[in-house]
């Protein structure tokens, strides 16, 4: 063995002993303070390894690289072992600290507001969004109307039998509370050219007050006018709507009906969800629930607004919002909608 080999061997042995001692002692360490002591002892300024590294310059040149490498490896090992240990102790310390910070998760949270949009607004907005998705815009009109827009221009002149279906509130001989949202059809057509797709939500008024009638209620009217619009388009639009609002599983049927300002006219039913169409108390045995009235715009109306009935055609529809709410949620008294009992409103 050369002198060089001898020196190296000696150094290796010393390092090994040092590491063995370190490993043994590290195992007995119980906390961060003891760990700190070990850190000082083995890689502190005065420790063997650090001193060796510091004094490496004094060693003979042929030993320097090997000695440096060996002691460095040893120091790195000590350092990383200590870090590992430190992490473990720190975790334990955190855990102990956080354990003491436990709270009662079952306590109620601090209250924020519990506001609620009125059920009517909710359903109106839902319907608006369905139709917006189909390309409709939203039009509005006055709640106090002229006889002309409410009746006359809708093919219902004075003395027309359909007038007795609408018990009307009058402001004067020619001014009244609109009995439906349909006057907006005329107003909109007067100021716009086809193609047009609109829905018209709003309050309407009829002189009636009992379980199934309130003097004010909410309607949504729809109007589509373009070249070549036909009854098939009406069916598609309203079927799509009914499926969106009541569910794809509901059947939809169109029944002939009469409205003065549409022809052909229809009433639209969806299958009763209570009995599944077999007939029950809710659908009065028919298996169907009426949801809206519709029809092709009567060509006469075009003469009031200056459209050419041979060029354009269209359809219109209207529905009662409260009725749709009632069918959806099983509400049995229309008056509840306007009593504003928070115990009612907050259910939806």
């Amino acid at each position: 063995m050369s002198k060089k080999e001898k020196n190296i061997d000696q150094l290796e042995k010393k390092i090994k002993t040092e590491l063995d001692n370190f490993t043994r002692e590290l195992e007995t360490v119980k906390n961060l303070i003891e760990l700190d002591k070990i850190r000082t002892k083995y890689i502190g300024k005065k420790s063997f390894l650090i001193k060796t590294l510091k004094n490496i310059g004094d060693l003979p040149d042929d030993i320097k690289p090997i000695a440096g490498k060996k002691s460095n490896t040893a120091r790195n090992k000590v350092e990383s072992d200590i870090l590992k240990k430190e992490k473990i102790f720190k975790n334990i310390e955190y855990e102990n600290k956080l354990r003491k910070e436990s709270i009662d998760l079952s306590l109620p949270g601090r209250s924020t507001g519990t506001g609620r949009k009125n059920i009517i607004s909710q359903v109106v907005e839902e319907i608006e969004e369905i139709f917006i998705g189909m390309g409709f815009e939203i039009a509005e009109g006055p709640e106090v109307e002229t006889d002309y827009y409410n009746f006359e221009a809708l093919n219902t002149p004075r003395g027309h039998p359909a007038r007795s279906l609408h018990d009307t509130f009058f402001i004067s001989k020619d001014i009244l509370m609109r009995t439906h949202t349909s006057p907006v059809q005329i107003r909109y057509m007067e100021s716009h050219k086809p193609p047009l797709l609109i829905i018209v939500p709003g309050k309407v008024y009829r002189r009636d007050y009992d379980v199934s009638h309130t003097p004010m209620f909410t309607q949504i009217e729809g109007l589509v006018i373009d070249k070549g619009i036909n009854f098939g388009n009406l069916k598609w639009t309203l079927e799509t709507f009914a499926h969106e609002i009541f569910g794809k599983d509901r059947k939809v049927r169109f029944r002939p009906h009469y409205f003065p300002f549409t022809e052909p006219s229809a009433e639209v039913d969806v299958s009763c969800n209570i009995c599944g169409g077999k007939g029950c108390r809710v659908c009065s045995g028919s298996g169907w629930l009426e949801i809206l009235g519709a029809g092709m715009v009567d060509p006469n109306l075009y003469s009031f607004v200056g459209y050419n009935p041979e060029e354009v055609s269209g359809f219109a529809f209207g529905m009662g919002i409260e009725r749709i709410c009632m069918l959806r949620y099983g509400i049995d008294d229309l008056r509840l909608f306007f009593e504003n009992d928070l115990r009612f409103i907050n259910q939806f």
Partner: peptide, 18 residues
């Protein structure tokens, strides 16, 4: 009415909005 077809409306390529 039940024998009439359901036809998507050609006007529905319009953009609806508030």
């Amino acid at each position: 009415y039940d024998r009439l077809d359901s036809i998507p409306t050609s006007a529905s390529n319009r953009r609806g909005k508030y």
